[in-house]
Computed example of a mutant assay.
Amino acid sequence: MSPRKSAVETAATRTRIIECALTLASAEGLEGVTIGRLATELGMSKAGVIGHFGTKEALQLATLDAAVEKFADRVPARAAGADPGVDRLTRAFDEWIAYMADEGHGGCFLTSVATEFDGRPGPVRDAVLAALSRWSDYAAAELRTAVDAGDLPPDTDVDQLVFELGGVGLAAGQAIQLHRDPAAPERARRAIDRLLGR
């Protein structure tokens, strides 16, 4: 086997492990993803699984990175073509709600991991906090753009509005996942439109 082929296969195996961990964590929580469970699911040895990461924490962080990348590709990336400010932010929240409501998706991975790790200091909590802070910063930047463009009042409390928009997202996630409420996505969209003065 050539070194190049070996490196490609190693990378492919690592990706398979992360994808499996992401699927399991979406349904059962990140802490519930064990090396043994992944080994069984993938038909690998435990040593073969952990050998790609070194520690369970490193596997959790790699899984979290993959979830953040999927979120970025689905939510802000799809909103990028909308006009900056209110239109782009509305589109981003619409994509987030659709992402949570997708059949078999398991809701918002980051939101559920945040709840799982919010009281547990360490690198995983820090990584979740950093990812969610980037989302809040994104929303705040779009709101400031909207204020500068005159689409929102000049005295808009951007931090408060970010908080309220995030609250709608969290409520939508719970209503979609826990209550299985088919009206939740539309309710959330109406709430966001009202907050953004649309």
Rank of each mutant, 00 (worst) to 15 (best):
Glu164Asn: 12
Arg74Ile: 08
Phe93Thr: 03
Asp102Leu: 11
Ile97Lys: 01
Glu142Lys: 03
Ser133Tyr: 04
Trp96Gly: 00
Ala127Asp: 06
Val128Thr: 10
Trp135Phe: 14
Ala62Cys: 09
Pro84Trp: 02
Pro123Trp: 03
Gly150Thr: 06
Ile50Cys: 02
Gly43Phe: 08
Pro84Gln: 04
Leu161Met: 11
Ala139Arg: 05
Gly107Val: 02
Phe109Trp: 11
Leu38Cys: 09
Ala72Glu: 15
Asp148Ser: 14
Gly54Ser: 07
Gly81Thr: 13
Trp135Pro: 01
Asp157His: 09
Ala62His: 04
Phe117Glu: 07
Thr111Val: 11
Val75Arg: 06
Val86Asp: 01
Ala98Glu: 09
Asp151His: 14
Ala131Tyr: 03
Phe71Pro: 03
Leu59Trp: 04
Thr34His: 09
Val75Pro: 08
Glu116Ala: 00
Arg120Tyr: 03
Leu61Thr: 11
Thr40His: 15
Thr111Leu: 15
Asp73Met: 10
Tyr99Ile: 01
Met44Asn: 03
Leu129Gly: 14
His105Thr: 02
Ala131Arg: 09
Ala130Lys: 13
Ala149Cys: 04
Ala47Arg: 14
Ala39Ile: 12
Gly150Ala: 09
Val75Trp: 04
Val33Asn: 05
Ala92Phe: 01
Leu64Thr: 14
Leu64Gly: 09
Thr63Gly: 08
Pro84Ile: 02
Glu41Ile: 02
Ala127Cys: 07
Glu28Ser: 15
Gln60Glu: 14
Ala66Glu: 12
Val158Thr: 11
Gly51Leu: 11
Asp137Ile: 05
Ala39Phe: 10
Met44Leu: 15
Thr145Cys: 13
Arg91His: 06
Gly32Arg: 13
Asp87Leu: 01
Ala114Tyr: 11
Leu59Val: 07
Ala139Trp: 04
Ala82Asn: 02
Val124Gly: 06
Trp96Ala: 13
Leu129Asn: 14
Ala146Ser: 06
Arg88Gln: 03
Phe71Tyr: 15
Gly36Ser: 13
Ala131Val: 08
Val124Asp: 06
Gly54His: 08
Arg120Asp: 15
Asp94Trp: 00
Gly167Tyr: 07
Val49Ala: 08
Ala79His: 00
Gly122Tyr: 08
Thr115Ala: 14
Leu59Gln: 02
Ala80Gly: 01
Glu116Trp: 01
Ser112Gln: 14
Asp87Phe: 03
Ala139Ile: 08
Lys70Ser: 12
Asp118Gln: 13
Pro121Leu: 02
Val168Ala: 06
Pro153Cys: 06
Leu42Gly: 10
Tyr99Arg: 00
Gly107Ala: 02
Glu95Pro: 01
Val158Tyr: 08
Gly166Lys: 10
Ile97Ser: 00
Ile50His: 07
Ala39His: 11
Ser133Leu: 10
Thr63Asp: 05
Gly48Asp: 08
Thr115Trp: 13
Gln60Asn: 11
Arg37Asn: 07
Ala92Met: 12
